[in-house]
Design a protein around this nucleic acid. Structure first.
Ligand code: SF4
Ligand code: SF4
Lengths: 134, 134
DNA sequence: ACTAAAAAGACATTATAAGTCTTTTTTATG
DNA sequence: CATAAAAAAGACTTATAATGTCTTTTTAGT
């Protein structure tokens, strides 16, 4: 239960690797994929998502590739995970008020709110800088 | 991400309802299903799982049905969830040592261990008694 | 024997995950 | 400007898991 998908795992591996490289060095997707052992075509999709929200910056054409969108100390694991997996939602009812008709009277509901909060807090407290250091 | 399945949600609803009933009262599966708005055949499967590990006690034949296997203050939400969803595993690598070849050197690994611990702690601190009170 | 109920197992359907393939767009460089 | 290198975009597969349903069997009370 509550398992990260491969996509999420790959996303983390890829961007942590990128964070471990010299700051201004443009990295080829194919090199990243090889380094972290992920199917290149799959990682491409993931980095496209990163690029759209600015987590990474991409350069197209000859000499192109990827760099981090921000310094690694300002990117958290939470952002990375939510970028590809969507929001942390231990149960439907925490997505928004009224998702479940029972939510006002339900004693279980606050537990899921708590779980969501704790998990978000943990992931938010971890930066790529921390993860990239050896 | 990290979303409880319907099965898990239904399982909780069902057993919480059972916990809210007078202790020795034998409940029909069909009644429970109707009360918590779950497909009866699906809930049957769930309660079979409960029964196997003793979370509930079942009586077959005429006058049969279900009662809690223990008093509601000694059943935690963690047990209920893990009974039907399996262990809380935010990522493969926390299942057991060596699941991921990188786990010894990986800086992300301890984060997932932490998440697992926190979630288990929260769910383990909630009893059916708490959940069943109105 | 008859009936009420859960247990067991096979089956069906749908949704999501996981990954591939092809085509298009962008850009540096000779 | 032609070419090649690289990411972006979109369509497509395939595998796995979620969400049930249906039928038959076992058990137990009357
Ligand atoms: S935990 Fe309660 S509020 Fe949330 S989905 Fe279940 S019944 Fe609804
Ligand atoms: S977090 Fe680290 S140890 Fe866990 S699966 Fe990913 S690479 Fe392996």
């Amino acid at each position: 239960m509550m398992e990260l998908t491969r996509k999420g795992e790959y996303a983390i591996r890829g961007i942590v690797f990128l964070a471990s490289r010299p700051p201004e060095q443009v990295c080829l997707l194919s090199d990243i994929a090889a380094a972290v052992d992920v199917p290149p075509t799959f990682l491409a999709k993931i980095f496209q998502q990163f690029s759209k929200i600015g987590l990474v910056k991409s350069y197209r054409g000859t000499g192109g590739g990827f760099v981090l969108g921000r310094t690694p100390d300002r990117i958290t694991l939470l952002e990375v995970v939510e970028a590809v997996e969507g929001p942390i939602t231990p149960n439907r009812c925490v997505i928004k008020e009224g998702e479940c008709p029972r939510d006002t009277s339900c004693n279980v509901h606050p537990v899921w709110v708590d779980v969501q909060q704790q998990v978000r807090d943990i992931l938010n407290s971890v930066t790529l800088q921390k993860l990239a250091q050896r």
